[in-house]
Write a protein that binds this DNA or RNA. Structure first.
Lengths: 211, 211
DNA sequence: AAGGAATCTGCACGATCGGTCAATATTTTT
DNA sequence: AAAAATATTGACCGATCGTGCAGATTCCTT
């Protein structure tokens, strides 16, 4: 009955792989690398433990795939930061996108946070290669804006760090934020207010040249 | 020969307890709760594993003590935020103190971050009782400043979160910050620059009334 | 339809974990 | 000095972990 070109096997491979990755992202986020057992990931994915090992040969390999996918998502979120764009629009859009990611993919953010807190034992090469080049590039863009008088003088590096920290806070610390919100998840309106408030706090003065 | 009033045993109890707590803070921070083994904590403290169990009956009890001490340190750091103080001085001092703590006690910050990321399985009561009351109090203070025209209108809650996130970033993500700093720890000058930059970014507009 | 490739899964092994316990050593009290 | 209280330590146990592996099952190719 199935007329897909690749056949049932290939289609299933993609589906099962995706389900394992999704389960792994959640379990790694909620229990940490050591606390996350393959059996729990398998149970969350709804398959036997041995099947997880079949698709990802080791726990570490599975973990590395999870972190790698998150890294890619985040890097692409900053595409708006280019020399030709308006500082307020570009940085504001970046904050909006990162807060949207914090809302929709909090597990990935938590996995990354855990990895960095523990001094990147698995993905140190990502930091030294891709992240460093990416950061240097974005800092250069912001510095150019400043040199062109498009925004006031502010440390590009620390501004980037403040944006990262303040946006990821709503993913990594969502449990604390929720507890301080009477135990309720943010509503749509509250997420809008959050985006407006974070942009207001961090981008004050950005957009209009001079002090 | 020892003439201390409390005797050798009592003196040793305090010293050994402190050494275990210090070692536990570091190991919990670098390996997470599950990844931190009692034997590694014991080895870091320079005593046998059984001795750790003798002073803190369970791993969980030891962990709770570590988190509790960190919580106390942080809460006391915000003593400057009172209605009678100047907004810029109070919030600026808070940021300075938190960044100083990020520099001197990064392990504690990491332990707290890990605990919250994993949804506070051990210290949820701290969040619901002490942290909520503390936060409500500080938000009320900031709101009063705004009502009095001492600072511009900004969401007190999100401003607090931005301060937390941007300061703790330099503790929790110190490994990432270090990697992006050519692998070197921040120098004294760089820490001063960090304090100035974070205050500049977050407190822009605070201190002078009106929009 | 048949044979081979790919997928799935239960079982077992060695390692490590948190925690118990009894024996010993040290300090304090009587 | 004897006895009691406290502190230290190594040996040990049941549970859980990641992972290897052989056999069963399903799918694809010819």
């Amino acid at each position: 009955m199935n007329k897909s070109v690749r056949g049932i096997q290939s289609r299933n491979r993609v589906e099962v792989t995706a389900r394992i990755l999704s389960a792994a992202e959640q379990v790694f986020a909620e229990y940490g690398y050591s606390g996350a057992s393959i059996s729990r990931i398998a149970a969350t994915a709804g398959i036997p433990k041995s099947n997880v090992i079949y698709y990802f040969e080791t726990k570490q390999a599975l973990y590395r795939r999870v972190v790698g996918e998150i890294f890619d998502v985040w890097r692409d979120a900053a595409d708006t930061i280019t020399i030709d764009s308006d500082p307020l629009d570009a940085l504001g859009g970046y904050i909006d996108t990162k807060l949207e990611l914090a809302r929709t993919r909090p597990f990935g953010s938590k996995v990354w946070a855990n990895e960095i807190i523990q001094r990147a034992p698995i993905v140190q090469d990502y930091l030294e290669d891709e992240l460093r080049a990416w950061t240097d590039d974005k800092i250069a863009v912001i510095q150019t804006w400043i040199d062109n008088g498009q925004m006031r003088e502010v440390s590009p590096r620390h501004l980037l760090y403040a944006i990262w920290a303040s946006t990821q806070h709503y993913a990594d610390f969502v449990h604390q934020v929720k507890t301080l919100n009477d135990g309720s998840d943010f509503s749509d309106v509250q997420w809008q207010e959050t985006k407006a408030a974070v942009k207001d706090i961090l981008l004050r003065g950005v957009g209009s040249g001079g002090s």
